[in-house]
């Protein structure tokens, strides 16, 4: 289960599972946000689960933002995300 909402300020609110099951939808939502806003804020407040595919997706999003000189900020990062980054060797 996954839903998302983008507001005018460029804040993208992600709710539900950011896992492989929904990762294509998450990608579409994220890409849409990057296309529309120059500064994207990802609000992870409503995130119930996150897996490794989301970490990869964020790397891709960062690359896009670098190329387009846009900014990507994470907000309300859940504890599980931090743990996952550690476990995945992304924390360095």
């Amino acid at each position: 289960m996954f839903s998302h909402k983008l507001d005018k300020t460029g804040e993208l609110l992600l709710t539900g599972d950011l896992t492989l099951q929904n990762i294509k939808d998450v990608k579409d939502a994220l890409l849409n946000a990057i296309n529309k806003a120059s500064a994207v804020t990802l609000n992870l407040d409503g995130v119930t689960d996150v897996d490794f595919s989301f970490l990869q997706l964020l790397r891709a999003a960062q690359k896009s933002c670098e190329i387009r000189e846009k900014t990507l900020t994470l907000e309300n990062v859940p504890k599980r995300y931090q743990e996952l980054a550690e476990e995945s060797g992304f924390a360095h």
Binding site: I23, V26, L31, Q56, R59, A60, S64, I67, F90
Partner: peptide, 16 residues
Amino acid sequence: IAQTEAIPALEDFDPE
């Protein structure tokens, strides 16, 4: 340590 240089920009990335 994860190596992620192969991940392309979002528009070209198959997240699966």
